[in-house]
Computed example of a mutant assay.
Amino acid sequence: MILAGVLVVIGFGFVAARGLNSGPEEAPPAPALGDVRPPTLPSDQGLIPLLSPTPKPSPSTTPATSAPPPSRDVLRVAQGPVPEKVDLSEDGESDWVHWGLEGTFSLERDKGGKFRILEGAPTAPRFRHSLSPQAFTWTGGDPVATAAGTKTGIRTCGEGNGFTLTAPAGTTPRILKIYLGVVSGRGKLTARLTTGDSTGSTVLDNPGGTLRTAVVTVAYQAPRSGQVRLTWNTDSAYGKGCGGVALEAATLS
């Protein structure tokens, strides 16, 4: 009995000693990277999409383009009444001219107009007149710098007689205005562009012996550099007096 008790005590001491000498239990080794498994999602739960930022529209790099020039002539002729007073300096941004202020062959024009409006060589006798019911004013003129309101102009007599004018034409739209009249006759104005076959015309008829006036507006544009050419002739002369056409002024813008 004594021997059995001693063996029990020794055995208990041996177990206790092992418990004191042993360290904490080691953690199991981590699985290799290839052995990692994602958690299983429930079958009724779909993937949540990630929202990508909406790209901002890039600014257009296409350069702005102007309207292309016309491929053919553009020409329109219209007739209307003359205002009571016409300021040629304001009306003619590019050039202006006035006839007959100081004499039969006097010509007053825009000093900075660069001679854009030109009259052709006279083909018939002309006369100065002061019959216009409207007054013409200007500033910046040459050789006469200013005019407060003149009613002068030039005229010619007889069927077939008249005046010719030219102005530059090109891809820039332009407006040429002609202030004209007729006494005891019928006048016809014809406009054409040298860059094509486009023409336009208008007629002013006056059987009376006083000056009837009008302003003829010629709006035009050409596909290339050229000219607009105008003729203002007496179609018919009435009576035995000096029936025919008259010319006061012209403007270009």
Rank of each mutant, 00 (worst) to 15 (best):
A147R: 05
L204Y: 04
V182L: 05
K151R: 15
L33S: 13
G5R: 15
T40R: 13
T210K: 14
G162K: 02
S106N: 09
W138R: 00
V216G: 05
T195R: 02
T234K: 04
L101E: 14
T166Y: 02
G187N: 05
G244C: 06
A16R: 11
T190E: 10
I10W: 10
V74I: 11
G141Y: 02
V144S: 09
G34Q: 12
R186M: 10
G244S: 06
P39W: 12
G23N: 10
G243P: 11
N161P: 06
Y179P: 01
K240S: 15
D73Q: 08
V183Y: 01
P122D: 09
T194N: 03
W138N: 00
D142Y: 12
K111A: 15
Y220A: 02
T137D: 00
P49A: 13
V6P: 08
R76V: 12
T65D: 09
A17V: 12
V36Q: 10
V86L: 00
P133H: 00
A32I: 03
I154H: 04
F127T: 12
T172H: 04
G200E: 02
G200V: 05
K85N: 00
L50E: 12
S52I: 10
E93A: 14
V245C: 08
Q227M: 08
P70Y: 06
F163Q: 05
G181C: 06
G158N: 09
D44P: 01
Y238K: 11
A16G: 13
P28W: 11
T104R: 13
K114S: 12
R76Y: 05
E25I: 08
T210R: 14
K114I: 01
A219N: 10
L7R: 11
A17P: 01
A27K: 10
A32P: 14
P223S: 05
N21C: 10
V245N: 09
S225R: 15
E93T: 15
K114E: 12
K111R: 15
G11N: 07
N21M: 14
C242D: 02
F163S: 06
L50A: 14
L252C: 07
L3G: 12
E159H: 11
F136W: 01
G158D: 10
H98C: 02
L47Y: 12
L131Y: 05
P38Y: 09
L41V: 12
E108L: 05
N206E: 10
L50T: 14
V82M: 01
Y179A: 03
A249R: 04
L3C: 08
D110Y: 12
D44M: 03
W138F: 00
T54H: 07
P38F: 13
R192T: 03
S71F: 04
L247H: 10
Y238F: 15
D35T: 06
F14L: 14
R229I: 13
S58H: 08
V36Y: 07
A67F: 11
T210H: 07
V82A: 00
V216Y: 03
R212C: 02
G241F: 11
G5V: 14
G92R: 00
G241C: 01
P223K: 05
T139W: 01
T171F: 03
L101D: 14
T190F: 02
V203C: 02
L165T: 03
D235I: 07
A191P: 03
V74H: 05
A167V: 09
E159Y: 05
A148W: 01
N21H: 11
V216F: 04
V215S: 01
G141R: 04
G200M: 07
